Computed example of a mutant assay.
Amino acid sequence: MLSFLARHPPRTRVVHLNKIEFDNGRSFIQFRPHEDRYLVINSLPPDEIPESPADDKPSPPNCALTPPLHWHSHQEEVFHVIEGDAIFYLEDKRQIARQGDVVTIPKQEFHTFRNASTTERLLIEFVLRPENKDRDECFFRNTQTYRDDCRNAGVPRSIFQVLMFNRRGNVVLALPGPKPVAKLAGLLMNFFGSIIGRWLLGYSYSYPEYYDKQH
């Protein structure tokens, strides 16, 4: 095992919190009771770089909660905009969602979203599949807190750790190239990246400081 090569930032204990702040308080995630329709509320700060209508690709993430372009192999995702405006990137399209709008992402469709405003926050809630709420909460708590802990510690994120979180959470990075090839490559990257991360580097799929099903 090559665990001595693994990079581990100091982990912030958030397992007991329903609301977790990131980016020095600029963003937060709040978990709903599992009987609610939606699982989480995300608050994203204003985007310092305005999204141009001419751009067909999203700007770089500006906070821990801004997802990269990705897809889900087995499930659709439903978003509800509570406050502000969001820009959704869906395959090769851009869509503006305003307060009260609901956006459904079919499974296997490349997607991400950004705050459309440079002055106002975006408050958005979403859920994948109700039967997967425990798994999804585990994913959100681990991947987003890990990212923020790495930022605070000045430690680069390990791609192998990220791929382990992604594989467990049914999240696949949207790679460039023809869609069939890109999707196969993304799945293979999750699979082999998880093997390397788990068995060679000693990373875990979840950390007790971040998630415990009993809480």
Rank of each mutant, 00 (worst) to 15 (best):
P60G: 10
L5R: 03
F88I: 10
P68V: 13
V14I: 15
I87S: 02
F28Y: 15
G84I: 01
L90N: 07
A6F: 06
E51N: 11
S27V: 08
F28D: 04
E76K: 15
L17R: 12
S27R: 03
F4D: 08
E83Q: 12
C63L: 04
T66H: 05
A6Y: 11
R7E: 13
L39I: 06
R11F: 14
P58K: 02
A54Y: 09
I49W: 12
D47H: 14
K19Y: 04
L65N: 01
H70E: 07
E48W: 12
P46D: 06
P61F: 11
F79A: 00
D56E: 11
A86D: 03
R37I: 06
N62S: 14
H8M: 11
H74A: 11
N62Q: 13
S59R: 13
S59I: 01
P9E: 12
E77L: 13
V81R: 03
P58H: 05
D56L: 11
S52F: 08
H34S: 10
E83I: 01
F79I: 00
F31K: 02
K57A: 09
N42M: 14
T12S: 15
L44F: 11
E76G: 15
D36S: 14
I20V: 14
D36E: 15
P60A: 14
P67V: 05
N42L: 13
G84S: 05
A54M: 06
P61L: 07
A86M: 01
L5F: 13
I20G: 06
P10Q: 13
N24V: 00
T12D: 09
S27K: 02
D85I: 05
P68K: 12
E77V: 08
P10I: 13
P53N: 06
C63T: 04
C63P: 03
S73G: 10
N42R: 08
P10A: 12
H74Y: 13
H16M: 04
I20T: 02
Y38F: 15
D56P: 00
P50V: 06
K57G: 03
N24G: 09
S73I: 10
H74T: 15
N18H: 12
V78M: 09
P61N: 08
V81E: 07
E77N: 14
N62P: 02
H16N: 10
N42A: 14
F22M: 08
P68E: 12
A86Y: 08
P33Y: 05
V14H: 00
L5M: 14
L90Y: 15
D47E: 14
N18E: 12
E77S: 10
E51C: 08
F31C: 05
G84W: 08
P9L: 07
R13K: 12
F4H: 13
Q30N: 10
K19T: 13
I29V: 13
P9G: 07
D85V: 06
I41C: 04
P53S: 05
G84T: 04
A6V: 09
A54K: 12
W71H: 12
